[in-house]
Design a protein around this nucleic acid. Structure first.
Lengths: 193, 193
DNA sequence: GTCTATAGGCAGATAGAC
DNA sequence: GTCTATCTGCCTATAGAC
């Protein structure tokens, strides 16, 4: 069972990475926030790279649970895509960037385990989207311009970029507008009833 | 007249920011690369924030020149959009992220002058794109799903995101595929002759 | 599990000689 | 313009007491 402190460290580190980037926060930032010492942090995580790896692992797991919840709710593909985009919007409402989008920017400076975990996050996102897009084609609710994997890649790219650019403008509506546009353009809804 | 050393400093710093991010390079990195001391760098730029501001200023200027060259070459809107996307592709071929896309990730940690310069970069990009998209509608070469400003925002977001995600995969084709897809979806070409 | 204390290095920056 | 020398502060990390 993970200690409560471990979870609190992950929570604080996660927020710091999502707002400032991996190279712009320190153990001291987390320690002061939790009223601990940096030495105590090393008891829970051997180093910053290991903390970062654990961060991605937890984030990917939670993201997967959110995707599973969308699947469990059922419904047609267009609704699932809207729910997917809203996961991103909820991150921005918290004034954050996607953890792995931020780490994609920091990619050149990351340890090998962190790099592999970042790529795996995107792979899983795209795999889930491919399934939804193929569902949409089967049920006739979506028209794709090309292959489902290509559309999935463009969707993830577009949504991550919309998050990235919306943050300097501090404007959630800007994201929502771009996201709606991207989803509708890349996976056009067949005119519903 | 700017000294040659000043230009060399900007070149080295630019590459470092585009590959590692603003908080993951140091004056020492630049100094060792140019066989200078960090003290000498302070003669040319008062501090890291001022160096960063100068970096964005030059980058925005150069980007503007590239956009002017596209306009000067003339042609219809679809060709201009393809040329625009190829500017991004050329950045990635150099294994870099867009300077301002990277700084958008670092945004929370930037000085006010740097923040303002980053936003201005995106504003100028979008203004140029709006003009191209409106040209396309006028000449009948493009069909937009909605307003030109919204499409322009989605295009910039999409291309920046495609750069961001392509870098971890080290795959230029991945960017090119997503970029083509984004451009075609957000600004559909009216079936040409 | 958390602490004190500290190591060893690197950060950005400055004074003043040349 | 570039240097040497140096400052102050922060960084990650470790040893060892409690």
């Amino acid at each position: 069972m993970a200690s409560d402190t471990r979870t609190e460290i992950l929570d604080a580190a996660e927020r710091l990475v999502q707002t400032r980037g991996f190279n712009a926060f320190s153990y001291a930032d987390i320690a002061s926030e939790l009223d601990l010492t940096t030495a105590s942090l090393h008891y829970h995580f051997s180093g910053k790279a290991e903390l970062g790896r654990a961060l991605i692992e937890r984030y990917t797991e939670r993201f997967g649970e959110a995707l599973g919840a969308i699947d469990a709710a059922g419904g047609e593909a267009p609704g699932k895509l809207a729910a997917y985009a809203d996961i991103y919007a909820s991150v921005l409402r918290d004034r954050r960037m996607c953890l792995c989008g931020m780490l994609a920017a920091d990619y050149d400076t990351l340890s090998d385990p962190m790099r592999a975990a970042v790529v795996e996050f995107f792979d899983r996102n795209e795999a889930w989207l491919v399934a939804v897009l193929e569902q949409g084609e089967r049920e006739g609710s979506l028209r794709l311009g090309g292959s489902a994997p290509e559309a999935a890649q463009a969707l993830v790219s577009g949504l991550e970029g919309a998050l990235l650019i919306a943050r300097p403008y501090g404007d959630v509506k800007r994201f929502e507008s771009a996201a709606r546009r991207l989803v509708e353009a890349l996976a056009a809804q067949s005119t519903p009833a």
